[in-house]
Amino acid sequence: MSPRSRMGELEQAVLETLWDAGSPASGREVHERLADRDLAYTTVMTVLDRLVAKDVVARERDGRAFRYAPRRSRAAMTADLMHEALEGTGAERDQALVSFVGEASADDLAALRRALADLT
């Protein structure tokens, strides 16, 4: 199971905040970016600690504080979820892929075609 599929909604929100930051962020910065959620600073720090323990987020010392950054990109973690979902289909893997592609938007299909062309 991928780390992202084992995350709660608040953990996901903190991770999204770190991805959106674009560079390592302090706990204070993450807390400020989540101000609309009315969370205690200690709650944000607890969530960051959990994400570090799950090896989803890296922590590096910056003076007396720490800075946090996602270990993997949003795209890489999304791909993990897609692979995890396909693994659960067993013998119906082909059908699951066909169903996915059948419901894809024109933009998604174009992106898939480009990706497949790049692989060949």
Rank of each mutant, 00 (worst) to 15 (best):
G8N: 15
G8D: 09
G8W: 09
G8F: 05
E9H: 12
E9D: 15
E9A: 15
E9T: 14
E9C: 08
L10W: 05
L10A: 15
E11W: 03
E11F: 01
E11I: 04
E11G: 13
E11Q: 15
Q12H: 07
Q12W: 11
Q12R: 14
A13Q: 12
A13P: 01
A13T: 02
A13D: 06
V14H: 12
V14A: 10
V14W: 10
V14Q: 10
V14D: 08
L15T: 07
L15R: 09
L15D: 07
L15C: 11
L15W: 08
E16H: 10
E16N: 08
T17W: 07
T17E: 12
T17A: 11
T17Q: 06
T17L: 06
L18M: 11
L18D: 10
L18W: 06
L18E: 11
W19A: 04
W19F: 12
W19R: 05
W19L: 03
D20N: 14
D20M: 07
D20F: 00
A21N: 05
A21M: 05
A21L: 08
A21R: 15
A21V: 01
G22L: 11
G22S: 10
G22I: 07
G22M: 05
G22N: 05
S23Y: 12
S23L: 08
S23M: 07
S23H: 15
S23N: 01
P24R: 06
P24K: 09
P24E: 08
P24I: 06
P24L: 09
P24T: 02
A25T: 11
A25N: 08
A25Y: 06
A25L: 14
A25P: 12
A25D: 09
A25K: 08
S26Q: 04
S26A: 13
S26C: 02
S26H: 04
S26W: 05
S26P: 08
G27P: 06
G27K: 11
G27Q: 09
G27R: 05
G27Y: 10
G27W: 08
R28L: 14
R28G: 01
R28M: 13
R28I: 13
R28P: 00
E29Q: 15
E29W: 00
E29F: 00
E29L: 09
E29K: 13
V30K: 07
V30Y: 08
H31L: 02
H31F: 07
E32N: 09
E32P: 00
E32K: 13
R33G: 02
R33K: 15
R33T: 01
R33P: 00
R33E: 07
R33S: 06
L34Q: 04
L34A: 01
L34S: 00
L34P: 00
L34K: 05
L34T: 03
L34I: 03
A35E: 14
A35S: 08
A35M: 02
A35P: 02
A35Y: 01
A35T: 01
A35V: 04
A35L: 01
D36W: 06
D36T: 11
D36E: 14
D36R: 10
R37I: 03
R37T: 03
R37V: 01
R37K: 11
R37C: 02
R37F: 05
D38C: 04
D38K: 15
D38I: 01
D38F: 10
L39C: 05
L39I: 03
L39W: 08
L39G: 03
A40I: 00
A40Q: 13
A40M: 12
A40Y: 07
A40F: 06
Y41T: 03
Y41K: 13
Y41L: 10
Y41M: 02
Y41N: 07
Y41H: 12
Y41G: 00
